Every structure is written in structure tokens, then in C-alpha cells.
Simulated assay, not measured.
Amino acid sequence: MAGMRLPVMPPLSPMLSKSVQQIPDGASYEPKWDGFRSIVFRDGDEIEFGSRNERPMTRYFPELVAAARSELPPRCVVDGEIVIATAGRLDFEALQLRLHPAASRVTMLAEKTPASFIAFDLLALGDTDLTGRPFTERRAALVDALADAGPTFHVTPATRDIALATRWFDEFEGAGLDGVIAKPVDGVYLPDKRTMFKIKHRRTADCVVAGYRLHKSGDDAVGSLLLGLYDSDGALASVGVIGAFPMARRRALLAELQPLVTTFDEHPWNWAAHADPDVVRRHGGGSRWNAGKDLSFVPLRPERVVEVRYDHMEGRRFRHMAQFNRWRPDRTPRSCTFDQLEQPVSFSLDDIGPGLTPRAGRPYRS
């Protein structure tokens, strides 16, 4: 932005984290928010929201731009997460809907499902670059700088107590959070470096393989396998995909699956029979983000069972791409139901911090 003059300037890649199995000792711990990672830059009325890929997200969140002008210090750079909360829990699907090319729809959704910003690091304040300071100093400066913020900008909870962090890990999932972040207390801010640690939930589920998509490299390999679970009504629901296979295994899978190939007329996911395109997209038959993307698949008779690893669910689907664990020839497809999934403890965002569930329709000025 031409008029912006800050000690830390966009574009800037955020500092990242690497996965570990256990919560490490001697760190500063925070809930792991499940939203869009973003660094917000404010220089007076000049506001920009960056992203993981360094592309600005400013146009998609006009309500955050307005709130930044009223809630943030006049000149600052803040690292955090853009989230949307509904009914006391994070709503990632509503957040994804905000990345829409039409300005009119962005405006409508900003009123209907307003976003919040969870701040967890302060990179600059006034003319001072804080990235070389230890995290404990940056955290104290963040708490002080945003002491009067709200109702849109919030400072994430943090603790040095590993017992409390462990409780957060167990309880906060019920509000849509997906783990805990551990930060070295003396660490400086290193953009695009994995110097923090993330501890996420790891679970397994037995799923039915109901179809496959071809690999983008050609027609002789599987790109991904479509997964299903049976609901209480006996219908097979689409829950996600797995796709991380070596190329040799992708080619072998294509040959192995050919005896199961069937027609859509005999398949539970005969999307062409549905007149409502939203029903089709919600169950894996299209893309709400890219109407031109080919998401067609080869239907398979639902006879093969695979055990997958996943972190948590977003509604009735895996929040992130599941990972292959092993084949389960000992399991019958009809035994692969939603009942096997672990249910997180019920928890509300308002139990984490007051005001984290925003009011729909809150006015803003663009």
C-alpha cells in the first residue's frame, strides 16, 4: 500500500509451527484457533490483512477493516487468526464462504456472519520493530496494546501452566478449536520458519471407499479416494477424501479398484438426480469455491473399507484431508457409521473468552 509506512511492511509470511505428539514442557501455551491465519497492518486509516500465501485478504472482510480502525493502535502490525463463530463454536464453513469474488455477496456475508480477529503476537508498534524481541516481551506488549480492544479484536488466552494447557487441549475442541500451540518463551519472530509447536487431536475411523478421482498427471493413476460413512437412516454420506499415496501405489490402486467400478444409477451418490446444486456440493459432488473445477469421480460399489487418521470433524465431514492408515478387510461396509466417531466435550467459545461469539448484523462502515 503506497501510503503505508511501518517498521514491518507487507507482504510478510507468518511464523509457522511443526507438529509434535505431546505438549512440551517450559513453553507458553495457547489454544490453536481454526480459521484463516492473517497478519494485520495498520498505519492510520491504511489497513491490510495478509495471509499465509502473502496475498491480501482485505477485500473479503470489510467489517474487520472498519473494526481495525476503531480497536487497534494507530500504527501496529498484529499476527493472528480470522475466525467466524456461530452458536458458540467456530464455523470454518462459514469462513470459507467469505472468499467470494462478488463484492455484493461479500458485503451481505459481512453483515450476516461477521468475522472476529484473534490476536496472538505483536510484530510492530508505532515506529518500533518488535520481531527481534523475545516472545514473552511481545506477548506483554500485545496484551497492553489491545487492552481496550473489542468487540471484534481479541487477545488469545495464554498460559505457562502445562496442566491448564492440557485441559484446554481436551475441552476447547468442543468449541471448534483444534489443539494447542506451544511457543518458546525466548523465541524471536522468524517469518516462514517452523519454530513453534502444534499439538493436534489424532483419531482413526473406518470408512467406506465409494469412488475415486484420477490423478492430475493422467488417466493411469488414482488421485484420491472418496470416503463415506453410513448415517442413522442407512444412507451413505460423503465425509472426505484421502490422497497421499506414492505414484507407484496410485497406479496399482487404479488396477485394484476396477472390479468395483459401477454406474451412477446404481450408486448412492447419483448427484445428477438432485435438482438442488447446494445438495450436490455439500455432499462432495461439486465445489462452492470454484464452479469451473472438475470434481467428477468414478463411482465404486461401496464394498471396500479403509482405516484413516483424522484430527476432527467440521459438521459431517473431515475438517482436513484424512490420511491412509490401513485396509480393513475384516470390517463390513455397513459397520462404518458415524457412531464410531469420538464426540468432543461440549464447550462454548464464550467459556474461553467473553464476546468471542459476535452478533450477526453488527453494522460496519466500509
Results as ranks from 00 to 15, higher is better:
residue 2 A to Y: 13
residue 6 L to D: 13
residue 15 M to H: 10
residue 24 P to E: 07
residue 27 A to N: 08
residue 28 S to W: 05
residue 34 D to P: 05
residue 37 R to A: 11
residue 53 N to I: 03
residue 57 M to G: 12
residue 59 R to Q: 14
residue 62 P to N: 06
residue 62 P to Y: 12
residue 67 A to I: 02
residue 71 E to G: 01
residue 73 P to A: 07
residue 75 R to E: 10
residue 81 E to K: 03
residue 82 I to G: 13
residue 85 A to Q: 06
residue 87 A to L: 11
residue 89 R to M: 09
residue 91 D to Q: 09
residue 102 A to V: 02
residue 104 S to D: 15
residue 105 R to Q: 11
residue 107 T to A: 15
residue 108 M to T: 10
residue 110 A to F: 11
residue 112 K to Q: 14
residue 113 T to N: 12
residue 130 L to P: 02
residue 130 L to T: 06
residue 130 L to K: 01
residue 132 G to K: 03
residue 133 R to C: 12
residue 135 F to M: 05
residue 139 R to V: 01
residue 146 L to V: 02
residue 147 A to G: 00
residue 158 A to V: 09
residue 165 A to E: 00
residue 173 E to C: 03
residue 174 G to C: 05
residue 175 A to Y: 11
residue 177 L to C: 09
residue 190 L to S: 08
residue 196 M to C: 10
residue 199 I to Y: 04
residue 201 H to Y: 08
residue 210 A to I: 10
residue 211 G to F: 11
residue 212 Y to Q: 11
residue 214 L to N: 09
residue 215 H to W: 11
residue 217 S to L: 12
residue 218 G to R: 05
residue 226 L to G: 03
residue 237 A to K: 15
residue 242 I to K: 00
residue 242 I to A: 03
residue 243 G to W: 06
residue 245 F to S: 12
residue 246 P to C: 06
residue 252 A to F: 08
residue 254 L to R: 15
residue 261 V to Q: 11
residue 265 D to C: 00
residue 282 R to L: 09
residue 283 H to K: 07
residue 288 R to I: 13
residue 295 L to T: 10
residue 299 P to N: 04
residue 308 V to L: 06
residue 308 V to A: 12
residue 311 D to S: 15
residue 314 E to P: 00
residue 325 N to V: 12
residue 327 W to C: 10
residue 331 R to Q: 14
residue 333 P to Q: 08
residue 333 P to F: 07
residue 334 R to D: 14
residue 346 S to R: 14
residue 350 D to H: 07
residue 355 G to K: 04
residue 355 G to N: 03
residue 358 P to M: 06
residue 366 S to H: 06
